[in-house]
Amino acid sequence: MTRLRASLAALRDRRDAGVSLAELLVAMMVFAILIAITGGFMVSASRASSQTQSIDSATRVATNGMTAVTRTLRAATENPVKGQTLPDAAFPQATANAVTVYAYVNLGSSDATPVMVQYYLDGTALKEKTWPGVVSTDGFWTFGTTPKTRTVASPLVTGTDLFAYVDADGATISLAAGAVPAAKIGSIAAVRVRVQAGTANTSAASTTLVNTVGLPNLDIARDL
């Protein structure tokens, strides 16, 4: 009995003594390690989610821009002009960062009417201007002076040409002062479009699409 009482007293004294400093330090260390692991996982997950959203957004922007430009360029056509033996070339303008084209791609009307469309870089935005066709009494088309303007892709990563022009042999037409020379406008057989959408020139922050658009309405033999 005396021994049992002594054991109970020792156990009571140990319980009353509480947690030692060493035990407290070990517990704090383990807790800190768990917090660090959990915090690191949360930061990594947040960064991965943010990067995925950024890539998805850039891909959508690039796809929308490329679709709009491709649809119009594929419908490029020459424009007959009263008093001229030869029609105007399909491209009134062909520069590194802007292109203007005559096209039968008027989705706002049930009639087959041409439009004149310009795509150009405005800051970090790819914009589209559209002039409606106006037919005269003798059947020739002219184009209004007040275009409709909209943004088709933004933001874009700038610094690289949006457009390059290819002849019937598949060779890139050299630009003079940033534009296709007037003597070469009629030899454009395809347009190479490069759209890089995003916020920085890295694979994690941008998406780049490149497409060479043929011009089936133009009577040009191609070797592309």
Rank of each mutant, 00 (worst) to 15 (best):
S136H: 09
A164L: 12
A221E: 15
T72H: 00
A221Q: 14
G108E: 10
T85H: 00
A76S: 11
S206Y: 06
A200W: 01
A17F: 10
L224I: 14
A17V: 10
S110R: 12
A190Y: 02
G18A: 15
T158H: 08
Y119V: 04
T67F: 14
F140D: 06
A112S: 14
R14S: 13
K129D: 14
L11I: 15
V135T: 12
L218S: 07
T145A: 15
R222G: 01
R71P: 03
K82A: 15
A94R: 05
G198H: 06
A221D: 15
A75H: 10
R71G: 04
V135K: 13
T130R: 15
S49G: 14
V117F: 03
A75W: 07
T85L: 14
L34A: 14
T151W: 10
V30Q: 04
D223C: 10
M28G: 14
D223T: 13
K82G: 06
Q118F: 07
L73A: 02
S206C: 03
W131T: 05
R74V: 09
M42N: 13
A90C: 11
T2N: 13
R71W: 02
K148C: 05
E128T: 06
F91I: 07
K82W: 10
T142F: 08
T70V: 04
R194M: 00
D138N: 10
Q196A: 08
G123P: 08
M116C: 12
Y119K: 07
Y104Q: 13
E128G: 09
P87L: 03
A197K: 00
A94D: 01
R60P: 05
N97A: 07
P132G: 08
I185P: 09
I55Y: 03
V43T: 14
I33M: 13
E128F: 11
K184T: 11
L73E: 05
G18V: 13
T208G: 02
V115K: 12
A197S: 10
L86R: 08
T202R: 01
G18Y: 11
V180A: 07
A76G: 08
A48Q: 09
G40S: 04
L4G: 12
V193E: 02
A89V: 11
Y119Q: 02
L8K: 01
G133H: 01
T212A: 07
F31K: 05
A179L: 08
F31N: 08
T85S: 14
L215K: 02
T52G: 15
A204I: 07
R194Q: 13
P155D: 04
Y102H: 09
L162K: 00
V101N: 03
A32N: 00
A58M: 10
D169S: 14
A204W: 04
S109G: 06
W131L: 13
F143Q: 03
G178A: 09
R12T: 15
A45V: 06
K82L: 13
I55C: 05
I37R: 08
